[in-house]
Computed example of a mutant assay.
Amino acid sequence: MQLYVFTVEPGLARDVVAAGAAGIVVDWENRDKVRRQQGWGTEINRHTPRDLERVRAATGGRVLCRINAHGPWTADEVRAAVARGADEILLPMVRRPEEVDRTLDLVDGRCGLGILVETRDAVERAAELARRPLSRVYVGLNDLRIDRGATDLFTPLVDGTVDRVRAAVDVPFGVAGLTLPGLGTPIPTRLIGAELARVGAAFTFLRRSFIADLAGRDPAVEVPRMHAASAALRARTLEQVRADRDALLAAVGGTPAPLQPA
């Protein structure tokens, strides 16, 4: 399981990658985000092009840059991210394939392009979107909840939404987020990790609580513990997979979709 950390602190970026994280995410997405996420308790970063330069200089891991949703500013943001060394650009709030096509044209093969499936439109068009030459696809639960007008963050994990998107994707797929083993609220990170293993996720972004949970701990110890926990979940029996799925359903509530182990 590849682990990606949102941070622009060069020392932390260097340490977590050295400990085994796959890379770092620098987050430029903030246009209209305050209005869109008002009242939802989400985190809004205001990272800068200079932050991307500093992180790129600090680590040999992959550096991903999340830009804003497609708009008149996209060409400038793509140009800035490529110039400052991003290995991949992440396009959030995708709604139409045309947005992805235009961004791919702007990228022009100079780095990878991944998309965030976090709108109803993107979920419905997942198969069409996945036919593009993407570097990765990630289901963003926070914005998908807001776009749906839903209440529970984790419902897409149990109602079949994540499974349907996953079935359409041939490139590295990710969803949700993890923190240190034994922690995580309101859903324990073990149950989230169990779902990532079940659907065959190749990567995840670490939960915003990860940085707080890591305080006072050694990344060289904690990141390998996360990898070991992920490996153990991938080795479960079908009976154990079902038990973990039942535990997640009990924690989230709702009606389960048919179980489809990867």
Rank of each mutant, 00 (worst) to 15 (best):
Gln2Arg: 01
Leu3Ser: 02
Val8Thr: 09
Val8Asn: 04
Gly11Leu: 06
Gly11Lys: 09
Ala13Thr: 05
Arg14Gly: 01
Asp15Lys: 11
Ala19Trp: 05
Ile24His: 00
Asp27Leu: 08
Asp32Ser: 06
Gln38Phe: 11
Gly41Phe: 04
Glu43His: 11
His47Asp: 15
Asp51Tyr: 06
Val55Glu: 01
Arg56Cys: 02
Ala58Ser: 06
Ala58Ile: 03
Ala58Thr: 04
Leu64Met: 09
Cys65Gln: 10
His70Lys: 07
Pro72His: 10
Ala75Ser: 07
Ala75Asn: 04
Arg79Ala: 14
Ala81Lys: 02
Val82Asn: 09
Ala83Thr: 13
Ala86Asp: 00
Leu91Pro: 00
Leu91Tyr: 10
Pro92His: 04
Pro92Ala: 06
Met93Gln: 13
Met93Ser: 11
Val94Ile: 04
Arg95Met: 11
Arg95Lys: 12
Glu98Tyr: 14
Asp101Val: 11
Asp105Trp: 06
Leu106Asn: 05
Arg110Cys: 03
Arg110Asn: 08
Leu113Lys: 00
Leu116Trp: 12
Glu118Gln: 05
Glu124Arg: 12
Ala127Phe: 09
Leu129Glu: 11
Ala130Tyr: 07
Leu134Gln: 08
Val139Asn: 03
Leu141Phe: 03
Arg145Trp: 03
Ile146Cys: 09
Asp147Ile: 06
Gly149Cys: 08
Thr155Ala: 06
Pro156Thr: 08
Thr161Phe: 01
Asp163Tyr: 01
Arg166Asp: 00
Arg166Phe: 01
Asp170Gln: 07
Val175Ala: 08
Gly177Lys: 00
Thr179Met: 04
Thr179Cys: 05
Leu180Lys: 05
Leu180Ala: 02
Leu180Thr: 05
Gly182Pro: 02
Gly182Val: 05
Leu183Glu: 13
Pro186Thr: 14
Ile187Pro: 01
Pro188Asp: 03
Thr189Cys: 08
Val199Ile: 15
Gly200Asn: 10
Ala202His: 15
Arg208Met: 09
Ala212His: 15
Leu214Ile: 13
Ala215Phe: 13
Arg217Pro: 12
Asp218Ala: 12
Ala220Gln: 14
Val221Phe: 07
Val223Glu: 03
Pro224His: 13
Pro224Ile: 10
Pro224Trp: 13
Arg225Ala: 15
Ala228Val: 15
Ala232Thr: 13
Ala232Met: 12
Ala235Asp: 12
Gln240Glu: 15
Asp244Asn: 15
Leu249Ala: 09
Val252His: 08
Pro256Gly: 15
Pro256Val: 14
Ala262Trp: 13
